[in-house]
Every structure is written in C-alpha cells, then in structure tokens.
Write a protein that binds this DNA or RNA. Structure first.
Length: 480
RNA sequence: CGGGGAGUGGCGCAGCUUGGUUUAGCGCGCAGCGUUCGGGACGCUGAGGCCGGGGGUUCAAAUCCCCCCUCCCCGACCA
C-alpha cells in the first residue's frame, strides 16, 4: 500500500528538480487543460476554466465600477485595416493566421484572425465619436486572439488564447494616461489580492512596448524557476491609432482633435502563473479567493456511513452559505485517495467527518498550505473555516512575497549583473541611462532583458553598460 | 527556428538492436459482483489495441528504409 502511494506521488515530477515537467504534469493531472488535435492549441477543461471565470467575475465587477462597458467586435481583421498603423502591422502581421477563402471562393482581400483588436475597433470609434461629449469611450471585450507561435506551452503560450482587451478613447493625454494607471492598479489587485502573486509595477522599456503604443505599463511576476513573467499590460497608445484611423472629435473650443487611446489586457496566461507560483510536489495550490472549490468535505464512511454522511451534508449546506464547498460522498474511493486527489487539485481546506467526529461533535480540518490536522467543533465551524481560508490566502501571498524578496538582487557592476543572470538569481535591479545601445549590449552579453522600470523608484547610480549617470532604475531577468 | 527526446488499449511503459512462438505483453485505470473505508484498499470475473499517418523493402513489418504530423525538454523570439 505504501509502495503504491509512493509510485503515485512519483507521477508528478519534483517541482524543484524538474520544473517544466512538473508544470505540465500538474496541468494535465489536475485536469486544468489538455492537448487538442490542433497544433499549438489547448483545451481548457472545466476546472481550469473555472479559474478563468473567477478572474472574469472579479475583473468585470471592477471594470463596471470604473465605468467600462462590454462590447464585442469581429474575429476577422481585413489586411488593409491591420496595415494602417505602421508599427502595429510590423509587430503583429508576421504572426497572424490568415483567412484566404470563403467556401470555395478566394477572397479579394485576405482577413487576419485578430492577434489583437485595435485595427478592427478603431474604424468603429471613428464612426461613433464626434464630440468631446462622446468621450471618454470606455469599452472592453472578452474574446480570444490568435498568434501563430512557433513554440507553445499550456496556458503560458498557445496559438489561440483567451483574454479581455480594453479599448478606451479620451479627450486628453492626461485622461488616457490616468486610464492606463487605473487599469494597471486593478490588475495589480487581481494579482496580489486574489491570485496571491506579488508583482513589480512599472513601465516597459521602449524596446518591449506594445507595437503601436507610445508606452506600455506592465506587471512583472517572478516564477519559481526565477524567470519573470509579464502578468498584465496597459498601453498608452497616444494618438497613433487615432491618426492612422482618423478618430477625431470636436472639442469644447470648436477645434477638431485626435482622440487619445489606450488598450489593456490580461490573458489566460495568468492561470499558468498561478499554477507555477503556488503548486508543490503534491500538485496544485490555489489561493482561496480564486479556488473554484474552497472547502472539500470528505466523510469517512466505514461500516455505518449514515451518521457521518448526514453530518457532512449538514456542514455542506451550512458552509455553502459562506464558501464554495464540495461534498465528496463518492463511495468508490477511500478517504486517503480523496485526500490526495483534492490536494493535487489544490483545494485550500479539507474537512474530514467520521464516526469519531460525530461522537465528539467535531470535524478535522486540514489546510493545503500545511500545519497538519486540527479538530474544530461544530459550533462556529463557519468562522473556523473562514479564518482558515484567510490564513491560507495570506500564507500563499507571504510565501510568494518572501520568494520575490529573496530573489531580487542589486547589481552595481556589469560583472555582477552578468553573474546574477547567469546564476538565475531572479530580478536584478540596476541603474540605466535608457540608451538603446546599452540595453542591446546587456541583452547580448547576458541573455537578460529589461523587464520593468518601476514607477516609484528614483534613479541612482550609473548605467552599467556605459557608466553615465542613470536616468532610470530597471529590473533585468530572464523572461517567459 | 536550432539542439535533443518521444508517439504501442484511458494513463504509464516493455517489446524494436538481431523482422517470424507475440494470438502484441505488463502495471494502473475502467465495467460487474462481493468485501472494505481516519493518508492513494482487496478478491474474483470481464471489456478494451488496424502499434501517430502515408509510402516503400520483404514470403512476412510495432520491429528495417523514406516522407509527413504531433507532443515533450533545452536554447533564440512573442500575452
């Protein structure tokens, strides 16, 4: 029996020793996703999709509260529209999937399957926006986009992926920039408060900005393999798209002006970040605020299952009013099997209810983050569970935050930066003169890219590449 | 896109080097019945496979040759 258990555990590779294999195994075994018959495209299974729905619900509430409304734009982008903004087409056209036929007929103009939707949305904005009274226009859509990636990984990079994309138009630069920052902070809250993933918040260096943007704000998280992952972006598009698509409005002063636009997104890639951030050798680990099942109740059935089952049902109903609860009353599996199964699926809290508990009017509670079994009495079990859920949420965040702190280092010299990247220390904080040549040199010599220029960090020291006084702080890392 | 590795019942694999006693096997899982149930239970019975696809070589191909597809891992580029 114990040897079987060991054999089973080995089905999930070690997270610390075989991170990539571990990641793939967890995605598949926890039934978050599966491979599809289409190259590069994954199937998001119900348990994985429930994570996405959780993010959607949380975000949608904030988007609505900040005045955004949801719309839907076409899947296809005519090539002529995609080409209107020069930098944009250069960035995205190489990775587009193209529709060339409708039925048997060849199309006069081929259609890109949207890699992002600016180019199909802007013509509509040109039509809808006439006056400053039409601004700001705050729209978003929930959709999928397609980018013909060469190498793919479940959730982290797939040919088609799900996201939302916000597209807003404003009368002034300041309004548009403020919009970017408002969204950025909503994203930060999603990452930190819900997904328990601490992030660095800032701007992208020019080389990493969105194709067609003036600047891009970003959230960068550090994964356990010490690679950075871009967790969300908010783009200040300036008047680039407005000018390319002729989106103008008549202002109060009776002069015609181009609008200022933004676009922003987070994708199902966040599910990948979530898996990597909190899982362990037993499988998935889910922060309670995003866990589709927060509490699983496992009755210990034994010879006289009725009593334990009856108590479990009562708990299920009571706790169901304050948390997302699953009663696992399947009689074809033993309790031990279920314990392992639900741990592998990352459920934050488990309650066991057996004959002993019924006799003592108690239940055994176990947190996914550790601490062993504790006995809780039936009275006030709701409060005990809610407290435990908070503790698990905090434990994940604290752990991730400590990891980030432990893997953020300073580099005062080029050699230190080189070594920190080579040794995969994580984020490396340095000064930078913001010259492209210096960035290129560092990229070439170390393999690291500048991930983020923090918003709230004053420049100090010198640029490691050229020795001139730095004009910005930048965090380097290897990245997904 | 380079460099490695892999495709054999649902999953994990063996068989391939040296083609033929292999009727393609093992473990897990699955179905039925019974016994079990506080950390991946057990017995009995049973179902399930044109060996990734296509071409070739041969009396004979899971096994040898060629082409293609897909996936995984390690690197270079992108949410």
């Amino acid at each position: 029996m114990s040897t079987d258990a060991q054999a089973f555990v080995k089905e999930i590779p070690s997270k610390s020793e075989q991170f990539s294999d571990w990641y793939t195994a967890v995605c598949l075994k926890a039934e978050l996703a599966d491979y599809s018959p289409v190259r590069g495209c994954m199937v998001i299974r119900p348990y994985g999709y429930a994570l996405w729905e959780g993010m959607q619900r949380w975000l949608d509430e904030r988007f609505k509260a900040t005045g955004h409304v949801t719309a839907y734009f076409p899947l296809f982008v005519p090539e002529s529209l995609l080409k209107k903004e020069a930098e944009h087409v250069e960035g995205f056209a190489p990775d587009c999937a193209w529709v060339t036929h409708g039925g048997a007929e060849e199309l006069a103009e081929r259609l890109a399957v949207r890699p992002t939707s600016e180019a199909i949305i802007m013509p509509m904005y040109a039509k809808w926006i006439q006056s400053y009274r039409d601004l700001p226009l705050l729209l978003l859509q929930w959709n999928s986009v397609v980018r013909w990636e060469k190498a793919t990984r479940l959730f982290l990079r797939t040919t088609e992926f799900l996201w939302h994309e916000g597209h807003t138009a404003h009368a002034t630069l300041e309004d548009a920039d403020q919009e970017c920052l408002t969204i950025l902070d909503i994203y930060r809250q999603l990452l930190e408060d819900v997904l328990a993933i601490p992030v660095l918040v800032g701007r992208k260096p020019a080389s990493e900005k969105f194709a067609g943007a003036d600047w891009t704000y970003t959230l960068e998280a550090l994964m356990p393999d010490r690679q950075a992952i871009q967790a969300g972006t908010s783009h200040f598009l300036g008047q680039n798209f407005a000018k390319a698509f002729g989106v103008k409005f008549l202002d109060r002063d009776n002069t015609e002006k181009f609008v200022w636009t933004t676009s922003w997104a987070v994708s199902t890639r966040l599910i990948g970040a979530l898996i990597m951030a909190h899982g362990d050798d037993r499988g998935l680990g889910l922060p309670p605020r995003i866990a589709p099942i927060q509490v699983v109740i496992v009755p210990i059935l034994g010879k006289q299952p009725e009593q334990a089952l009856a108590a479990a049902r009562v708990f299920s109903e009571r706790l169901g009013k304050v948390a997302r609860v699953r009663l696992d009353d399947r009689d074809e599996y033993t309790p031990g099997w279920k314990f392992n199964e639900w741990e592998m699926r990352g459920v934050p809290i488990r309650l066991e209810i057996g004959p002993r508990d019924v006799a003592a009017k108690a239940a055994v509670m176990v947190k996914r983050t550790g601490g062993g079994k504790v006995t809780v009495s039936w009275d006030g079990i709701e409060q005990a569970v809610l407290t435990a859920l908070d503790e698990v949420q905090r434990a994940y965040f604290d752990r991730a935050k400590a990891f980030l702190a432990d893997h953020t280092v300073e580099a005062a010299t080029f050699e230190q930066l080189e070594e920190a990247i080579r040794e995969r220390r994580g984020f490396v904080r340095t000064g930078w003169c913001q010259a492209q040549a210096c960035e290129d040199l560092i990229r070439e010599r170390t393999g690291a890219s500048p991930r983020v220029i923090p918003l709230d960090d004053e420049p100090d020291g010198e640029c490691l590449a050229c020795g001139k006084p730095s004009t910005a702080i930048v965090y380097y890392a290897r990245a997904y």
